[in-house]
Design a protein around this nucleic acid. Structure first.
Lengths: 71, 71
DNA sequence: GTGTGACTTGGAGTCCGTG
DNA sequence: CCACGGACTCCAAGTCACA
């Protein structure tokens, strides 16, 4: 159930990141999170907190609602 | 920053819960979470995971995006 | 440039009780 | 009916190394 959601969020992050021409390292630095952790979130392995999701969404200039639209 | 977000989410939960005429205990049982924990999330004291937010949103029949709209 | 294993630690999340 | 407390358990979050 929620695993699908985590995967979808990870895919969304990866998609937006590539759209903006950013590497994991670059984006991780932008939003001040650990690169290895970002990799795990993108793969759907982790169940991030709402704080973390917000930081990521804001890193793309999106609101939580916009970022999670369609998920 | 994120504290305001947590507070806003808590207020949203409380508002939706009351709109539906549910007590904390009733809703906590519906979405299968601990009543004391729900109380703390509503007060903005906790930083819930995306899984938890999803369970709560779904408890109201909303998607994540709908639930977080305007936050 | 990315994925993953192993580890630590603070806090998420549970259980039960009280005013 | 709700807020808050202690006392847990377990996982999110951060760190490092290596493939």
């Amino acid at each position: 159930m929620t695993k699908a959601t985590r995967k979808a969020i990870g895919a969304r992050i990866r998609s937006l990141r590539k759209q903006n021409g950013l590497t994991q390292v670059t984006f991780a630095n932008m939003v001040n999170i650990e690169r290895a952790y970002l990799s795990r979130v993108e793969s759907g392995e982790r169940n991030p907190s709402i704080d973390m999701i917000e930081r990521i969404a804001n890193g793309f200039g999106l609101t939580l609602s916009e970022f999670l639209d369609g998920i």
